[in-house]
Design a protein around this nucleic acid. Structure first.
Length: 169
DNA sequence: CCCTGATTCGC
DNA sequence: GCGAATCAGG
């Protein structure tokens, strides 16, 4: 690939928006994150303001939990059928917890990165958010690892142990 | 292991 | 100028 004016412009834009080098590389296509970083340096675009160099932090749930059951919009994913039909199930943009868990633990619901199909990689959560036919549709995109197609959170929702599923009914 | 950006250095 | 390799860190 070549660093055309348009591509450099996009690079500037994404970088200023705080996107990581790897994600910018995915957006542009044809280049590696190293290429992006190298280019950023040559353009002297480093720094990027006050972006805390570290990974985006996650909000820790209220520690001093006084048996307070985490309130959340309950959503029911009906799984009376499998296969293609299941794709018609409705999903909330930001999902949620169902009832409570054993020793009532506060599960941290991850914030979806809302990636588009083209931004998914082998290790990003492929849990769909919203209706595939609308513009708001996106995928969770958090890290999933080789463990599966979903992040830790969505894996739990997707693969509920038979025992637990019984309880939820 | 996965990810992030920073630097180096041969091409 | 480019970017893979490598380093340093979460």
């Amino acid at each position: 690939m070549e660093w055309t004016d348009e591509r450099v412009e996009l690079l500037r834009k994404y970088w200023s928006e705080g996107l990581s080098a790897s994600r910018i590389a995915a957006q542009l296509g044809g280049v590696s994150r190293n290429a992006v970083i190298g280019k950023v340096h040559r353009l002297k675009l480093s720094s990027r303001g006050r972006t805390t160099t570290a990974t985006t932090r996650q909000k820790k749930a209220p520690s001093t939990v006084t048996k307070t059951v985490v309130k959340a919009t309950v959503q029911r994913v009906v799984t009376t059928s499998i296969g293609a039909t299941a794709l018609q199930a409705q999903f909330d943009a930001e999902p949620v917890v169902h009832r409570q868990l054993r020793p009532a633990e506060n599960v941290v619901v991850p914030i979806s990165r809302r990636l588009s199909l083209v931004d998914l990689t082998e290790r990003t959560c492929k849990w769909p958010n919203g209706d595939p036919l609308t513009e708001e549709f996106s995928f969770c995109g958090n890290q999933s690892g080789e463990s599966g197609p979903y992040c830790a959170y969505h894996a739990r929702v997707a693969f509920q142990p038979a025992s637990e599923r019984r309880r939820l009914r």
